[in-house]
Amino acid sequence: MELDFAASAPLRLVFSTGLAAPPAAVYRSLAVELASTPAWFGAVTSATPTDGGAGRTVRLRGGVEFRETILATDPAARYAYRVDETNVPGLSALLEEWALSPTADGTRVRWTMAVDGNGPCRLAMRLARPGVGKSFRDAMRNLERRLTPARRPSPGSAR
């Protein structure tokens, strides 16, 4: 499975939002500072680099585990990986792509989950779409707070 699976998968879950943080900072959180992922993405309990940075191991709440191979690392545009091993029954292919586009006030983030699996697996993923979307929105709000801390007024300044 290669990057083109993101566009050709039998099931695609796509979510996007804007963040008031530059693409480089968003990319760093997604691809470089893996250990911090659970701090902003509530579904993730751990994310660890493997194979000298060419892969990752990710664990989710509920006991789901993924061993992944990184397919694209472009700090200005995207980060993508495929799942090579998982304990999700019926899942035969999963690729995730995080596309980053600069905007006037930050970054547009588009997350694509490209999925294939047996019928029950695909049905479960379709039914999970609203929950996965909420998880994405919550994660992006948390990431934005992490990357753009509120500015405090300086002493003596007007509020």
Rank of each mutant, 00 (worst) to 15 (best):
M1F: 07
M1K: 08
E2G: 09
L3M: 09
D4I: 10
S8Q: 13
L13I: 14
V14F: 04
F15R: 12
S16I: 00
S16C: 06
G18R: 12
G18E: 15
G18T: 10
L19E: 05
L19K: 07
L19T: 04
A20Q: 15
A20G: 12
A20C: 04
A21G: 05
P22Q: 15
A24T: 13
A25I: 09
V26P: 00
R28E: 15
S29I: 01
S29A: 15
A31S: 14
V32Y: 03
V32K: 07
V32L: 13
L34T: 07
L34A: 13
S36R: 13
P38C: 12
A39C: 01
F41S: 14
V44E: 02
S46V: 03
P49D: 12
P49T: 12
D51E: 13
G52M: 05
G53S: 08
G53N: 07
A54E: 13
R56K: 08
T57K: 15
V58W: 01
R59Y: 05
G62A: 09
F66T: 00
R67L: 05
I70K: 01
L71S: 04
L71W: 08
A72Q: 15
T73C: 09
P75W: 07
A76D: 02
R78G: 03
A80Q: 01
R82S: 05
R82K: 14
R82N: 06
R82L: 08
N87V: 01
N87D: 13
L91H: 00
E96W: 03
E96S: 11
W98E: 10
W98C: 05
P102I: 07
P102C: 06
D105E: 14
G106Q: 07
G106I: 03
T107D: 04
R108W: 12
V109G: 02
R110V: 15
M113H: 11
G117C: 14
G117H: 13
N118M: 12
R122E: 12
R122A: 14
L123T: 14
A124R: 09
M125G: 00
A128W: 00
A128L: 08
A128Y: 01
R129T: 08
P130A: 11
P130G: 14
G133E: 13
S135A: 15
F136M: 10
R137T: 09
A139K: 08
A139I: 08
M140G: 05
R145G: 09
L147F: 06
T148C: 12
R151S: 05
R151K: 03
R152S: 09
S154W: 10
P155F: 05
A158L: 08
A158V: 11
